[in-house]
Amino acid sequence: MATASKEKVNPSDGTVDRYVAGEHMDTDDLKIHRWGDPNETDLGPAFHRRFRPGQVLYGSRRTYLRKVAVADFDGVCANTTFVVQTKDPAQLLPEFLPFVMSAEPFHAFAIAESKGSVNPYVNWSDIERYEFNLPPLDEQKRISDLLWAVELHHRSLTSFHAALLAGMRLFLRERFESVAGGAVRIVDLTSEVVGGVWGLPEGESEVDVLALGPRVYAGGATRLSATGSPTRSISRKQAERRAIQTGDIVLERSGGSPEQPVGRVVIADEDLPACIPTDFQRLIRPDRKAVEPLYLFWKLRSDWLDGATRDYSKRTTNIANLSVPAYLERSLRVPSRAEQLRLVGDADALERTLADISTELASVARLRAGLLTAFFGGN
């Protein structure tokens, strides 16, 4: 029902101006968001497979990464990326094929057929043996129309979320740059800056608490949640200084990646269980007499969004370490309390909108997964 195209192209002959490698394809994402320019790099002999709009690209290396994408431009890829198309559109609709290859049974089959341990791969001769129930053409069209509608809605929401996040980044930068007020060192706006601890296994010291890990920053979170954090045991003296209170800011001291700078922050709301920062974090306790905690939080959040933390971090292997003392020596203009609250209110309103979009994105993703299971089966 499907075949792998063998059409070749010389990437340096000027007939294609984009190449797609494995790192340009994302897990469980049918759209190609990134690509490279073949004129700017030596691609090597493996990059000779031409693809055209509507064809399906499938990453045959490390099939557990589930990289299936539909091309919407001409380009070239390596021979380890299969360029898949239907043999006869009168039997298998081209728009139906991407969802066949996105369904869980297909991925399970490809993973089971993969060879090698360090960099497992699958051959096209294995993939083409995959069998599935093929509905009539009108049913294929009905299913594919529904799934593409869900797919395009998810893409639209994703684009809106990205645009709103970019707008929020600009809003925060401009508001903090335009406020009137005296310049104060950030460290002078705090009552304490405390290092975290990992502690001992549960029950081995005086106080059991939840130890906050990297998950508190996941998904661009701004409010602190201790859900899923492990329980650790610390002394009462350690707990007295480190127990998170409402309005505390937890700063990421170590972490990040080449694409994501270290220095993420979350702020604690009310009704948190007993929890503490861990070694790679710093607890920043704002001095409420000097600043609104959320005003300071949004300043630190804005700086991270703008990448300001890169100037205060050093990288060891793949981990960046933030020089917290130097970072907090920077100055911040502190306007009147009323102006601080106005900025916080506007930022919180934008944040709620972002959260609503994220919730809808998650719902659409669940719908898409449920429809794929309903139409093509699950594990």
Rank of each mutant, 00 (worst) to 15 (best):
A2L: 09
K6A: 11
D17E: 15
D17C: 14
R18G: 09
Y19W: 07
V20A: 06
A21E: 06
T27S: 15
L30R: 01
N39W: 08
R49A: 07
F51I: 00
R52T: 12
Q55M: 03
Y58K: 00
R61I: 03
R61H: 01
R66A: 11
K67G: 06
A69Q: 11
D72C: 07
D72E: 05
F73N: 00
N79W: 02
T81V: 15
V83P: 09
K87A: 14
Q91G: 05
L92G: 02
L93H: 10
E95F: 14
V100A: 07
S102F: 09
H107Q: 04
F109H: 08
F109V: 03
S114G: 00
G116Q: 05
S117H: 12
V118W: 02
Y121E: 05
Y121K: 13
V122C: 07
V122H: 10
N123Y: 04
I127L: 12
E128F: 10
R129I: 14
F132Q: 00
N133T: 14
P136M: 10
P136E: 06
L137P: 03
D138S: 12
Q140A: 02
Q140R: 08
S144T: 12
D145F: 10
L146D: 01
L147H: 01
V150R: 14
E151K: 05
H153S: 04
H154Y: 15
F160Y: 08
L164G: 02
M168I: 09
R173P: 06
V179H: 04
V179A: 10
A180V: 15
G182P: 12
A183I: 08
A183G: 05
S191V: 06
W198F: 14
P201D: 07
G203I: 10
E204R: 09
V209D: 05
A211C: 15
R223H: 11
P230W: 08
S233N: 12
I234A: 07
I234H: 01
I234G: 07
S235E: 02
Q238N: 13
Q238C: 08
A239E: 04
A239H: 13
R241I: 12
R241F: 08
T246R: 13
D248E: 03
V250R: 06
S257W: 03
V265Q: 00
E270M: 11
I276C: 10
I276G: 06
I276T: 14
Q281W: 01
L283K: 14
I284Y: 11
F297E: 00
W304T: 01
L305W: 10
D306A: 12
Y312P: 03
T317S: 15
A320K: 07
N321Q: 13
L322E: 12
E329N: 15
R330M: 13
R330K: 14
S331M: 13
P335T: 07
R337I: 14
E339P: 02
L341K: 06
G345D: 13
D346L: 13
A349R: 13
A349N: 05
L354Y: 03
D356L: 14
E360F: 06
L361E: 09
V364A: 04
L367A: 07
L367I: 02
L371A: 08
L372T: 00
L372Y: 05
T373S: 15
A374L: 06
